[in-house]
Computed example of a mutant assay.
Amino acid sequence: MSLSYNGLWKLLIDKNMNKMDLMKDVGISSGTVAKMTKGEPVSMTILEKICDKLNCDVGDLVHFVSEKGSETK
């Protein structure tokens, strides 16, 4: 099972933000954003900071993707 951060990318679009804005506003590294872009896990602390900044829940940011490729919520 892998992760999908499509919810995060959609929220950034809705808030007229890009990944650089996210890094600056939340204080996360480009390496962390790269991991999320690749669907790799990041710490809950990072997700908590993003949720605080974007005023959302973790489930709004990330979803598990089954081996068959369909997202699960």
Rank of each mutant, 00 (worst) to 15 (best):
22 L>M: 09
11 L>F: 01
35 K>F: 05
40 E>T: 00
69 G>T: 03
2 S>R: 15
59 G>W: 04
62 V>I: 14
31 G>C: 03
66 S>A: 14
25 D>R: 12
3 L>P: 06
72 T>H: 13
56 C>H: 10
33 V>N: 11
4 S>P: 09
68 K>Q: 07
16 N>S: 09
60 D>L: 07
34 A>S: 15
51 C>E: 02
6 N>T: 03
19 K>D: 05
37 T>P: 02
12 L>R: 05
7 G>I: 03
66 S>G: 14
69 G>S: 04
34 A>W: 10
12 L>V: 01
17 M>N: 00
57 D>V: 10
67 E>W: 14
28 I>F: 03
48 E>P: 00
37 T>L: 10
42 V>Y: 04
21 D>M: 08
16 N>W: 00
4 S>V: 09
12 L>S: 01
3 L>K: 06
25 D>N: 15
5 Y>H: 04
20 M>L: 13
38 K>S: 09
8 L>W: 12
40 E>C: 01
25 D>K: 15
17 M>F: 11
54 L>K: 05
60 D>F: 10
19 K>V: 05
56 C>R: 10
23 M>Q: 14
12 L>K: 03
60 D>N: 15
8 L>K: 08
43 S>W: 03
8 L>G: 12
30 S>H: 08
60 D>G: 11
24 K>S: 06
28 I>S: 08
61 L>C: 11
43 S>L: 06
62 V>T: 07
31 G>V: 07
53 K>C: 01
18 N>P: 08
54 L>H: 08
25 D>V: 05
46 I>M: 04
24 K>P: 00
32 T>Y: 04
62 V>N: 06
1 M>T: 13
47 L>G: 02
45 T>Q: 06
1 M>V: 12
38 K>A: 12
66 S>K: 13
1 M>W: 03
27 G>Y: 01
38 K>M: 07
30 S>G: 14
5 Y>M: 10
41 P>F: 01
10 K>H: 06
10 K>A: 12
5 Y>Q: 08
13 I>C: 02
8 L>A: 07
61 L>F: 06
20 M>Q: 12
6 N>D: 15
66 S>L: 15
30 S>W: 02
62 V>Y: 02
26 V>G: 13
55 N>G: 12
52 D>G: 08
13 I>A: 12
30 S>F: 02
45 T>S: 07
48 E>D: 15
30 S>Q: 15
1 M>F: 05
73 K>V: 12
69 G>L: 02
56 C>I: 07
24 K>V: 09
25 D>G: 01
22 L>G: 11
26 V>C: 08
51 C>W: 05
8 L>Y: 11
37 T>A: 13
29 S>K: 13
70 S>C: 13
55 N>Y: 13
25 D>C: 09
40 E>V: 01
63 H>G: 00
18 N>K: 10
58 V>C: 06
7 G>P: 12
53 K>W: 06
20 M>C: 05
55 N>K: 15
22 L>A: 11
36 M>I: 01
14 D>I: 11
48 E>F: 12
68 K>F: 00
72 T>K: 14
23 M>A: 15
19 K>M: 10
2 S>F: 11
34 A>Q: 11
1 M>P: 09
26 V>T: 11
57 D>S: 14
45 T>P: 00
30 S>R: 13
36 M>W: 02
6 N>R: 14
39 G>L: 01
72 T>L: 15
6 N>Q: 14
33 V>H: 05
48 E>Q: 13
12 L>Q: 01
70 S>Q: 15
8 L>S: 06
